[in-house]
Simulated assay, not measured.
Amino acid sequence: MTSSSIPGGISDEEAGNPVDPRAVHVLTGAGYDAADHSARQVTGEWLAERDLAIAMTQRHREALERLVSRLPEERRPEIRMFRSYDPAADGLTGTDLDVADPWYGDQDGFFTTLDQVEAAVPGIVDEMRSRLRG
């Protein structure tokens, strides 16, 4: 799956837009390439083809759960919070598991978000490997 095939949001207001230039700056500095990525809206049809959906915030989780509730039971993916894969976030619940949204802040917020994402990714990779083996 390419990065451009990964939906990025629940609403359609950012669909088609490129990555925020502040995020591109932070990602490029950390060695990531976000040049070809653009936002796509998550849909029920997209979710029906997955067995796992990972939400960045509790608000996103609730929106995903509403979308999933409209699907037949056998086509509903599991929904998890992104930071639930971060060992340092163990014991956190609800909005305490939200990945920081840097949109309305300054450049530093994008570094915080990157730190949170990078802390959780090894756990996500381990989970995917386990699911593929199982």
Score class of each variant (00 low, 15 high):
112 T>Q: 12
50 R>T: 02
84 S>H: 00
33 D>C: 10
6 I>H: 04
121 V>E: 01
40 R>F: 04
96 D>N: 10
41 Q>C: 09
113 T>Y: 07
71 L>A: 07
58 Q>A: 15
121 V>R: 00
75 R>W: 06
51 D>P: 01
13 E>S: 11
44 G>Y: 02
39 A>E: 03
110 F>H: 05
8 G>M: 14
82 F>D: 01
43 T>K: 08
69 S>K: 12
25 H>L: 15
52 L>S: 06
107 Q>L: 15
63 A>I: 00
13 E>P: 00
68 V>T: 09
62 E>Q: 11
120 A>C: 09
121 V>L: 14
97 L>T: 01
1 M>P: 12
127 E>L: 13
56 M>K: 01
104 Y>A: 13
72 P>D: 13
122 P>A: 06
24 V>M: 15
125 V>R: 03
1 M>F: 12
121 V>S: 04
87 P>D: 06
44 G>D: 03
53 A>F: 04
133 R>T: 02
125 V>N: 02
27 L>S: 07
131 R>M: 04
122 P>Q: 04
2 T>A: 13
91 G>D: 05
28 T>Q: 12
29 G>A: 05
95 T>N: 08
10 I>C: 14
88 A>Y: 02
76 R>M: 09
27 L>D: 02
101 D>H: 08
79 I>E: 08
77 P>V: 03
32 Y>D: 05
106 D>E: 15
59 R>C: 04
68 V>K: 08
64 L>W: 01
14 E>C: 13
10 I>E: 09
16 G>C: 13
77 P>G: 10
34 A>C: 12
116 Q>F: 08
126 D>G: 06
130 S>D: 12
109 G>K: 03
54 I>C: 04
9 G>H: 05
103 W>T: 02
51 D>C: 06
21 P>M: 05
18 P>Q: 10
58 Q>V: 03
11 S>K: 03
84 S>W: 02
100 A>Q: 08
